[in-house]
């Protein structure tokens, strides 16, 4: 009986002390921006990216019909219309998984934010990195790609 009480008490304590993030998927294009005007996109690879996220984004942008390339941050981006930056967060739960991905698209010259999207999936609803990239870019470019089909 003591063991039963102890386990229930510990579980209740965990419930009281823990915080759980909600699953989220958002995408927003800045008012007045037509993403179709920005055909040459440069994905700025972060130095910490050891999971090939920049390549996944670049590949998916190509599939959406954009001329996309990736590489390190540069002094200037004369050949690019827009920069694509991202933040990926990973978590361990039995295996490593991508908890959250944020992608921002901004004017390569002025830094004007053109669009951004974010997906957060906790362990029980985890997605593969490819699916996370697909979800975020789908939310950002969804209307543009639908219009071009």
């Amino acid at each position: 009986m003591r063991n039963l009480t102890l386990v229930v008490a510990l579980a209740a304590l965990l419930a009281l002390l823990s915080g759980c993030a909600t699953n989220n998927a958002t995408g927003d294009v800045t008012p007045g921006v037509d993403l179709a005007e920005f055909q040459n996109l440069y994905v700025v690879k972060t130095p910490e990216d050891r999971n090939g996220v920049a390549e996944l984004i670049t590949t998916r942008l190509g599939e959406l019909g954009y001329n996309a390339a990736s590489g390190p941050a540069l002094e200037s981006y004369e050949d690019a219309d827009a920069l694509v930056t991202y933040v990926d967060r990973w978590m361990w739960d039995i295996t490593m998984y991508m908890l959250e991905l944020t992608i921002t698209v901004e004017d390569a010259q002025s830094g004007y934010r053109l669009a951004s999207g974010n997906s957060l999936h906790t362990s029980l609803t985890r997605l593969s990195p490819e699916e996370m990239v697909d979800e975020v870019l789908g939310n950002i470019f969804g209307s543009a790609s639908e219009g071009s089909e």
Partner: peptide, 19 residues
């Protein structure tokens, strides 16, 4: 008691995912 602990934890998890 594992079952009770599981349901308490599940309740906590579901409550968190709805806020």
């Amino acid at each position: 008691y594992v079952l009770i602990a599981f349901f308490v934890s599940l309740l906590s998890l579901l409550a968190g995912c709805s806020t």
